[in-house]
């Protein structure tokens, strides 16, 4: 009997091991990072308990004074770590970003997928993807130089007229650095990812169903609204969740335009804020000077909360998809 040479059998083994390693690496990294972040946060979790999530004061304490011991953890006197303003800042800025970015992205995607053809489509697609490629710090710089002054002088004062109805829009507008500018810049940064994903989804809607709608006398917009968008709903929610995760985790640009508020809960759309990601980057230097290292542990806990929040929003999105999908979509897809 003829046999396949042992060399190619060895190669197959190498191939299997290599693909196995590569395939399992995302899981390994995720678990490793999760474990490290969790272990690093343990002292802070012990020290603050649930007050970490509800406290509004973030104070590293007197680093040159005596240490005090609380819940078995030693810390500089007066140290307290309350992350609520950052959790609120993260959620508020990312939700504003989604409110702006999702409609813009969906309409852009509809146009890219159905309304333009040939070179126009290629150029527009490339532009959208280029937008995704701009480094975060460049967005931040643009935010400081252009966006914040524009918000302060023009857009902000315009919005304050809405303040009569919605208290959250009341002024003063201030420097323009704050919640609104953070939301706007985040919106710009997540539009490309949501647009590109939605465009790909819309392009996958079988022509059969779209022609079914057209043949029934639907207008282009009705076809999109009644047939295409419902068809891609699952993926669309996934795309939005992806964008949301990005917006919550985005650091540099937000840090530059947020106004870096510490110990301050936003009371209007113009209030300066900080997000969890921005605080971690912003505060790490000072935290490293804490001899007890508790400040670093507190930042690690902030990172843990951020990771959990991203996970929760992702699961929430998935759950929404699952719940909505079961009602109608139990049959096969053509």
């Amino acid at each position: 009997m003829r046999k396949v040479s042992s060399a190619s059998k060895t190669a197959d083994k190498v191939f299997r091991v290599a693909t196995g390693l590569c395939a399992s690496s995302p899981v390994l990294f995720l678990v490793a990072i999760g474990i490290v972040v969790f272990i690093e946060s343990v002292p802070s979790i012990k020290f603050m308990g649930w007050h970490f999530l509800t406290g509004t004061q973030w104070n590293l304490g007197d680093m040159y004074g005596n240490l005090e011991v609380k819940n078995g953890v030693s810390a500089p006197a007066g140290a307290t770590y309350g992350a609520l303003p950052y959790i609120v800042g993260t959620l508020a800025s990312s939700v504003i970003a989604l409110l702006i970015a999702v409609p813009v992205a969906i309409f852009t995607a509809i146009i890219l997928a159905y309304r333009v053809r040939g070179p126009v489509k290629t150029v527009l697609s490339i532009l959208v993807e280029l937008l995704a490629g701009i480094p975060s710090v460049v967005f931040g710089l643009w935010g400081v130089i252009v966006l914040a002054p524009w918000v302060a002088q023009f857009f902000g004062p315009l919005l304050t007229h809405l303040g009569v109805v919605i208290p959250f829009f009341r002024g003063p507008v201030g420097t323009g650095m704050g919640l609104l500018s953070s939301g706007l810049i985040l919106a710009l940064m997540i539009v490309p990812i949501i647009t590109a994903t939605t465009r790909d989804l819309l392009e996958q809607v079988p022509i059969l169903y779209r022609e079914g709608g057209i043949g029934l006398g639907m207008t282009n917009w009705e076809v999109v609204r009644k047939i295409c968008l419902p068809y891609v709903k699952d993926g669309l929610i996934g795309a939005v969740a992806l964008g949301w995760g990005r917006a919550m985790g985005e650091t540099m640009a937000v840090l530059m335009v947020s106004g870096s508020a510490i110990n301050y809960l936003p009371h209007s759309i113009f209030s300066p804020i900080s997000t969890m990601a921005a605080v971690i980057a912003d505060q790490l230097d000072s935290a490293l000077t804490d001899a007890t290292h508790l400040a670093v542990h507190a930042l690690a806990e902030l990172a843990l909360v951020l990771m959990l929040l991203t996970l929760i929003t992702n699961f929430l999105a998935r759950w929404l998809v699952h719940r909505g999908g079961q009602r109608v979509r139990s049959g096969v897809r053509a």
């Binding site: 059969l208 169903y209 057209i214 006398g217 639907m218 419902p230 053509a334």
Partner: peptide, 22 residues
């Protein structure tokens, strides 16, 4: 064209009921 398709209906080669609808 939208008016045309209201008075000239079409049935396609492959059955294409809208998949997200009852």
């Amino acid at each position: 064209p939208v008016d045309v398709r209201r008075v000239v209906g079409m049935v396609f080669q492959k059955p294409n009921p809208f998949p997200t609808m009852s």
